[in-house]
Structures are given as C-alpha cells and as structure tokens.
C-alpha cells in the first residue's frame, strides 16, 4: 500500500514545497515498509521522471484539459480515484495554498483523518501520531490520526530535501473521471523573477524602524544579493508602505526560512509567532531593549541606515560581486 504524495505544480513546473513533500513521503514509506508514489495533475513541462532521484518509484499522471486550471473540487475527485486504484493509506500534501484547498476536501471525501502543518515524521510506534505547529508557531501538538487512511499536510521549509541517487520514476498515465469545474480562473498575477515568500530560504524583512517606503531600496538590494524574498511587519503593511502579501506574523504569513534578517522590527509577540520557526534569526535594531533580540541568534544594536549598506558591501565581497 504505497504512500501517495501530491505533486503540486505551477505552469508545468514542480514546486519546491512538493519536493519537500516527496522527500517526507519517501521517509514515511521507509518507516512503514511501503513504497512511495506520486500523483500529478494537468499539463507538465518538467522532467518529472527525474523526481525518482528523491525515492519516488512511480508517478500517476492525470493529464486532462480540465486540470490545467486549479479547482479544488475537481482536483480532489481526481486524486481520490488514484488513491482508490492503488489502495494508498497515507497521503502527503504540502501545506501550501493548493494543499490547503485540497487536503481538507479529501479528508471529508475519504473520511480520513488530516493533520495540517506537520513539521516532523509521524511517530508510528504506537498508533500514528503527527507533530504539528499550533498557536501560530508558539507550540507544537502531537495529533493521533485514528482512521484507516491518513492525510498529512507538511509545512513548507520543514523537511530537508535529499537526493538518493539517480533513479527515474516510472510515469503512469492515469485516466480519471473529471468533473465539471465550478471555479473559472480569469487571471494570474505573479511577481516575476522574485522568490515566493513562503518558499524562500532567506528572507530580508523591514519594520517601522525604516521610517518610510522610500527607504526599502537597501532591503531589496540585500535580498537580491542573497537570493532572498522580502517581507515586512504588520504596521508596515497596514501603512501601505509594502504590499499585504509581504506581511509576516501571526495574522500574516507564517514562514520558516533558513535565515530571517529583521531590520528595524522590534519583535512584538505577534510578529515572532510568524517567524520563530526560522532556523537562524538576525536582528538589526537601534534599541538594545527590542524584544526581538531575545528570539535572535545574531544581532547588531545600531542604526540600520549605517549598518545595512555595510552588510551589502560585505555580502558583495563574499559573493564576488563588484
């Protein structure tokens, strides 16, 4: 009974969050003594057979015109048919936008217990227990799934991507009954060439200490040098200095990059809730009493307008950029 991983794609390309889900699903399969298989929907341009290097043995590809645009109801129906055909008992999603649409629907459709926001492999020594974030990253809960079929949605940036050789996955065309779509996508507006915040390994974030939107040039420059996404605190988004989708914190996006650089952000508890799963936190703030320093790994007490340009110069040296 293979572990089935939903491979999420955008414009034919597999998302990084899905590669994490694949690596996680392969590890779950090893733990339960099963194989790992994937399911991908719609037109694909990526070489998906190459995903075999992460340990996927087969990929079920449902290529149907109706699946080229995202409708959670239609996607759920197609995935449920694959699950039924291969008798999968454990299904893995990324807890990204598409995962948040599909996994809950599938949970009801299959009457399968769902844990979203998983951060570690399940404990299968006694039942099936999954660790997830709760209270917006301020704590974890261990949740037992008590149904025959189990669904896990893995938080992005919570599981390491590791290649396991150069095997190819077998691609199997799967013909599913696809229902009529009720959601018509009329426009997609993607910020081209920028790293999506939820998938970024490095995030450079600015707060009120930067005094105004005109001062974001150095934030953007540092982010670009580091291949990072930019983010901001809530007051900055509320003041419309930066777009809402950059707001990280309890009521914005919760992120878990490898490196979070907070510039001019004091670190209110609501902000920390959205970023405290970052692996390394750097805080630059002129106020030595800023609460963020207590949650940081590295810090500089001082004026961001003096320090950040110097950091940019040092990073340029490191990267060999003139």
């Amino acid at each position: 009974m293979p572990v089935l991983i939903f491979i999420d794609q955008s414009e034919g390309q597999v998302k990084k969050a899905s590669i994490e889900a694949i690596c996680y699903g392969v590890a779950v399969a090893e733990q339960t003594g099963d194989t790992a298989e994937g399911v991908i929907l719609g037109k694909v341009t990526d070489d998906i057979a190459a995903l075999g290097k992460y340990g996927l043995q087969k990929i079920h590809h449902v290529d149907n015109e109706a699946l080229n645009h995202f409708d959670a109801q239609v996607f759920t129906g197609a995935i449920a048919q694959v699950i039924d055909a291969i008798k999968s008992k454990v299904i893995i999603f990324s807890n990204n936008a598409d995962g948040k649409h599909i996994a809950p629907r599938l949970s009801v459709k299959l009457k399968a217990g769902l844990v979203t926001g998983a951060v570690a492999l399940p404990d299968t020594t006694n039942g099936f227990v999954v660790k997830k974030t709760v209270f917006s990253g301020k704590a974890f809960a261990n949740i037992a799934i008590n149904t025959d079929i189990k669904i896990i949605a893995l938080n992005p940036n919570s599981y390491e991507i590791t290649a396991r050789g150069d095997a190819k996955a077998e691609i199997l065309s799967f013909s599913a009954q696809v229902g009529a779509t009720k959601v018509r996508v009329t426009g997609v507006n993607k910020v081209k060439g920028e790293v999506p915040l939820s998938e970024a390994d490095i995030v450079v974030s600015g707060g009120r200490g930067l005094r105004g939107p005109e001062n974001w040039g150095m934030i953007e420059e540092l982010a670009k040098l580091l291949g990072a996404a930019t983010a901001c605190s809530r007051p900055v988004a509320d003041a419309h200095w930066r777009p809402h989708h950059e707001h990280v914190g309890q009521t914005g996006l919760a992120i878990a990059p490898n490196l979070y650089i907070a510039i001019g952000i004091s670190g209110a508890i609501q902000h920390l809730a959205g970023v405290n799963r970052s692996k390394t936190i750097v805080v630059i703030n002129k106020d030595p009493e800023a609460p963020f320093f207590k949650a940081a790994d590295y810090g500089i007490v001082g004026d961001a307008f003096e320090i950040v340009p110097k950091i940019i110069e040092e990073v340029k040296k490191l990267k060999g950029v003139a």
Binding site: A112, L114, A139, F140, N142, I145, R277, A296, D297
Partner: peptide, 16 residues
C-alpha cells in the same frame, strides 16, 4: 478522526 495526544513548547533559544 483525530485526537490531541499532547502539546510541546519549542526549545528555548541559546541566546543572541
């Protein structure tokens, strides 16, 4: 379909 087994707090940071 699910039940909370228990909760955990994250380990404290070593210090800045």
């Amino acid at each position: 379909l699910t039940a909370v087994v228990n909760f955990e707090l994250p380990p404290a940071k070593a210090g800045v």
